[in-house]
Simulated scan of single mutants.
Amino acid sequence: MEKIFYVYLSQDDPKKSTMKKLERYGLAIEIPLNKIYNKLYLTPYSDNFLLNSNRILFEDKGIVVIDGSWNRINTIENIKGKNGKKLPLLLPVNPVNYGKPGKLSSLEALAAALYIMGYSELAGDVISKYSWAQNFIKTNINPLNDYMKCNSDEECIQVQDSYF
Rank of each mutant, 00 (worst) to 15 (best):
M117N: 04
I4C: 05
E23N: 02
C156P: 00
S46M: 08
P88D: 05
Q134K: 15
L89Y: 12
K149E: 13
L122D: 05
I56A: 08
A109E: 01
L22K: 03
N140P: 08
P32R: 12
I36T: 05
D12L: 13
L91V: 09
D13C: 13
E23H: 06
E77H: 12
L107E: 00
K86D: 01
I36L: 15
A109G: 12
L114W: 03
Y41I: 10
L122Y: 04
N48Y: 11
Y45M: 08
N74Q: 14
D47N: 15
E121G: 04
K85Q: 10
L110Y: 01
E30S: 06
I116Y: 08
L22N: 00
I56Q: 07
I76T: 14
I56S: 06
T139G: 00
P101S: 13
V159Y: 00
M148A: 15
F164Y: 14
F58I: 02
E59P: 00
A28N: 04
G81N: 06
L51N: 05
E2D: 14
I36K: 07
V64A: 04
I141T: 09
G84N: 10
Y115K: 02
I79P: 03
I79W: 06
D13F: 10
D12Y: 15
P95M: 05
S131K: 13
E23S: 11
I66K: 00
L114R: 04
Y45R: 05
G81C: 12
N74K: 14
T75C: 04
C156Q: 03
N83A: 08
L27K: 10
K61W: 01
I127D: 06
F58A: 07
K100Y: 10
N54L: 04
E59G: 06
L42F: 02
S17A: 11
N48E: 14
M1N: 10
D125T: 15
S162G: 15
W132A: 03
S46H: 08
S46D: 07
V7E: 02
P92I: 03
F58S: 01
Y25K: 13
N71H: 08
S152L: 01
I157S: 03
A111D: 02
Y119P: 11
S17H: 11
D146V: 00
N74H: 14
K39L: 09
N97S: 10
E108F: 04
R55Q: 12
K100A: 11
V126F: 06
N78S: 14
E154S: 10
K3F: 00
I73S: 03
V7R: 02
